[in-house]
């Protein structure tokens, strides 16, 4: 089980959280002009990296707030967490994996 540092409550066990999948996936702003391929990209295609992954988590059995996190998908170690709506930080660039 992962130990996750909620930016608002501190370290808590994973069972208090729900993972919301990859972060920074923006819904197309002009739906009627968006091609089927771009819709597929938004709905279904994911980065799925072996390395640092930007993802959304919600502390649903705690403060109830969403936040973003960078996590290494090989060691499962959290690199950092950051506020929803802010860009992906540089942190974790020292974790290199193919």
């Amino acid at each position: 089980m992962l130990l996750i540092r909620c930016p608002y409550c501190g370290e808590r066990p994973e069972v208090e959280f729900h993972c919301g999948g990859e972060a920074h996936i923006a819904r197309p702003e002009t739906p009627t002009e968006t091609s089927d391929a771009d819709w597929a990209g938004f709905l279904y295609y994911r980065t799925n990296p072996r390395g640092v992954h930007a993802e959304r988590w919600v502390h649903n059995h705690g403060c109830g707030r969403w936040f973003n996190a960078l996590r290494d998908t090989v060691s499962d170690r959290f690199v950092t967490t950051y506020e929803m709506g802010t860009p992906r930080p540089e942190a974790g660039s020292d974790v290199t994996r193919a």
Binding site: M1, L2, E14, V15, H18, C19, E22, R46, N48, P49, R50, H53, E55, R71, T73, V74, S75, D76
Partner: peptide
Amino acid sequence: DQYVSYSQQGGIQ
């Protein structure tokens, strides 16, 4: 498990 991982191990829960 609920997250993307290549660790080949999962949570005890």
